[in-house]
């Protein structure tokens, strides 16, 4: 590892992220397998559609658990917009869609990420609740269950779409980002481009963890 890389995430965060990501992916794939009969074949590798149903249901439970940790962990950093810079950032779409001379500086998570987090958190909770009711439909009023189907599908539409945005921006759409969730170490340049404000704050507070350097200050993000 090169010297000067900055630690953006710790191991726990990355484990939670990938747990959530993988379970979400499995849920999407298995969900697709049940939603479209043309995707029923997905069940085949699981030993049939019925097993797929169980994979979906129990992955759902796992998803709920990781969602809980996700929300607890990132709520403060990604769940709250900080005005006005987030608004300004959003006004120029973070510089993703058109050329912006000066993208407003945002914290560790930009409003796009925050929005994604909120969608995942919100839809995730909704998927958990609707999913559980759908799992035991006979214990609830029929009319309620019917609308659970709708919300579950709506949640899927949203998550599924956001999933691809995330995938793109986390990989080729924003080279360097993947590292944040793989190794946890990112370049200063990438950080400066993506999360300049956070970089500044951390530097200011002396909490920045830089590979090969002593901490600039004590009392940082201790582990």
């Amino acid at each position: 590892m090169r010297k000067g890389l900055i630690q953006a995430t710790d191991a726990f965060e990355r484990i939670v992220h990938w747990s959530l990501a993988i379970s979400c992916l499995i849920l999407c794939i298995t969900g697709l397998g049940m939603m479209f009969q043309s995707f029923n074949f997905i069940g085949t590798i699981m030993g049939g559609l019925k097993s797929l149903k169980y994979v979906h249901n129990f992955t759902g439970l796992f998803f709920m658990a990781t969602l809980y940790f996700t929300i607890r962990m990132w709520w403060k950093e990604a769940g709250v917009f900080s005005m006005p810079e987030d608004m300004e950032w959003m006004m120029c779409a973070g510089g993703y869609l058109w050329h912006v001379d000066k993208v407003p500086e945002v914290g560790k998570y930009n409003p796009g990420q925050k929005a994604f987090f909120l969608v995942v958190a919100g839809c995730g909770v909704m998927m958990a609740i609707t999913g559980l009711i759908m799992w035991f439909p006979l214990s609830f009023p029929t009319e309620l269950v019917r609308w659970m189907f709708v919300l579950h599908a709506l949640g899927f539409v949203t998550i599924f779409a956001f999933f691809f945005v995330h995938l793109y921006l986390g990989t080729i759409g924003s080279p360097g980002s993947l590292d944040a969730m793989l190794s946890g170490w990112v370049t200063r340049a990438w950080l400066k481009k993506q999360h300049p404000k956070w970089l500044k704050e951390m530097e200011h507070e002396g909490k920045l963890v830089v590979y090969g350097e002593e901490k600039t200050s004590t009392g940082g993000h201790g582990h």
Binding site: Y96, G173, S174, G176, W190, K193
Partner: peptide
């Protein structure tokens, strides 16, 4: 893609 700025890249 949204790439880091050249100079900072260099600096980084």
């Amino acid at each position: 893609p949204k790439l880091p700025d050249e100079d900072q890249n260099h600096k980084g």
